[in-house]
Write a protein that binds this DNA or RNA. Structure first.
Lengths: 104, 104
DNA sequence: TCTATTGTTTGATATTTTTCGAACTGAAAA
DNA sequence: TTTTCAGTTCGAAAAATATCAAACAATAGA
């Protein structure tokens, strides 16, 4: 059975969220999800990165509260926790959307 | 003569700004400046940190575009680049102000 | 001029983070 | 059941970051 930890809205920590966004690969993933909704790992527009590294970045994004998974068969679909983020950090998601996608 | 590099508004990079804010000491400094305007190093509410480490953090904040210095005698006064940040990343400063000061 | 003050820079070390390949897990398909 | 597929976890190595003390720089004041 799959038990995974998602921080609640009040558990989200701004410093941790900023640290998560402070890596170019993770910023790219988040902007990708913010623009185009749900995606699985192969849908993130990042290149030249091993799947274990990608999994590591996903974990950091999830644990900071930025993204959430949905399991369907053998695939893990990820999406931005837009509503939760809007409530916890108003303006943040819009700021990410306003920004042209960073180069990897 | 003192020549120091401040990024222009268009040179500011969101990922670099987030990385700068992703450290608890630096987050504390930025929130302190956002709330109370200009301060010199001894005015930052951070403890148990050497002056060389503090200087290092200040450099990262300055180079990311978050803060700017003003030299007066032997003191260096730092302030948030609020207007520039408002223009480049609308909502960011307000988000920092909405957040209760992080614990060191 | 000498000294104290405010802060930066340098060099070194410790810690954290990023990265990968290999092994593993769970689910679907053959 | 065996294989394949999508992804995670583990263990190790490399790279980046945080930290400090000591040395340095610039200014103000005695």
């Amino acid at each position: 059975m799959k038990t995974l930890t998602l921080p609640s809205i009040s558990e989200m920590d701004l410093t941790a969220v900023c640290a998560a966004l402070g890596d170019p690969v993770r910023m790219k993933i988040v902007q990708c999800l913010a623009r185009s909704g749900e995606k699985n790992c192969s849908g993130f527009e990042v290149e030249h990165i091993s799947k274990s590294t990608l999994s590591h970045h996903i974990k950091i994004l999830r644990e900071s509260g930025l993204i959430q998974p949905r399991f369907q068969g053998k695939e893990h679909f990820y999406s931005l926790r837009k509503e939760d983020l809007d409530r916890r950090f108003p303006g943040m998601v819009e700021m990410l959307l306003n920004e042209p996608a960073s180069k990897e």
